[in-house]
Simulated scan of single mutants.
Amino acid sequence: MYKSIKYYVSQHTSRTVLLHKEGCQYLPRPDSRSFIGSCYTPAQALTVSLMQYSNIHYCPHCLSDVTHAKVAPVNPPPLIPLCGAKKPPKKPKEKQLKAVRHFPV
């Protein structure tokens, strides 16, 4: 089970914001950082912080394993049919009767 960790954002440059986790040695002072919330994964913290900030990057010191981790592509399992369902049989078309005139008009 994951343990929740507190995440913070800080202004890195004029256009870049860094995402830090609690205990980072490069975490700025409390007056120059913003608390994002307690999240279970760095990806979740990034999603939460993207709601308020743009151009966010992971801190290269405390979240370096996230930035360099190579994620193997996930292949979905093949779909298994649940039952042998078939289309219902088509009903035969009913013949339409046409009126026949026996006497000339």
Rank of each mutant, 00 (worst) to 15 (best):
K95G: 01
C24R: 11
G84C: 07
S14M: 02
Y7S: 01
P89A: 11
S54A: 13
Q44S: 14
R33L: 03
P60D: 13
P78F: 04
S10P: 02
P76S: 14
C39P: 00
P30N: 03
P60I: 12
Q52L: 06
G23Q: 03
K70Q: 04
Q44T: 12
K98P: 01
I5Q: 03
K95S: 02
S49V: 06
P89C: 05
P60R: 09
S49W: 08
C24S: 05
C62F: 04
K87S: 13
P60G: 11
I5D: 02
P28C: 02
L27A: 04
Q25F: 10
A69Y: 09
K95C: 06
G23W: 08
G84E: 10
H20M: 13
P77R: 10
D31H: 06
H12W: 02
Y58F: 15
L82H: 06
K87W: 11
C83H: 07
S34A: 14
K6I: 07
I80H: 12
A99T: 07
R15T: 07
E94L: 11
Q25G: 09
P92L: 10
T47I: 05
L46C: 01
V66I: 13
C83W: 03
Y53E: 07
S54Q: 14
S54I: 06
Y8Q: 05
P92D: 00
I80S: 15
M51A: 15
I5M: 10
Y40C: 11
S64K: 14
P76F: 14
P28T: 01
I80K: 15
S10Y: 07
H12Y: 10
P28R: 09
H68G: 13
T13F: 04
S49T: 12
K6W: 06
I5F: 05
Y7N: 00
Y7G: 00
C24N: 09
K90I: 04
K98C: 08
H61K: 12
Y8E: 01
T13N: 07
T13A: 04
L19D: 11
L50Q: 12
C24G: 08
N75P: 06
K86I: 06
S34C: 09
S32I: 10
V66P: 01
L19W: 01
S49N: 05
L19G: 12
K90Y: 02
E94V: 05
L19N: 00
I56P: 02
T13Q: 13
S14R: 03
K6V: 11
C39E: 04
S32A: 09
P76H: 14
L63E: 00
K91E: 13
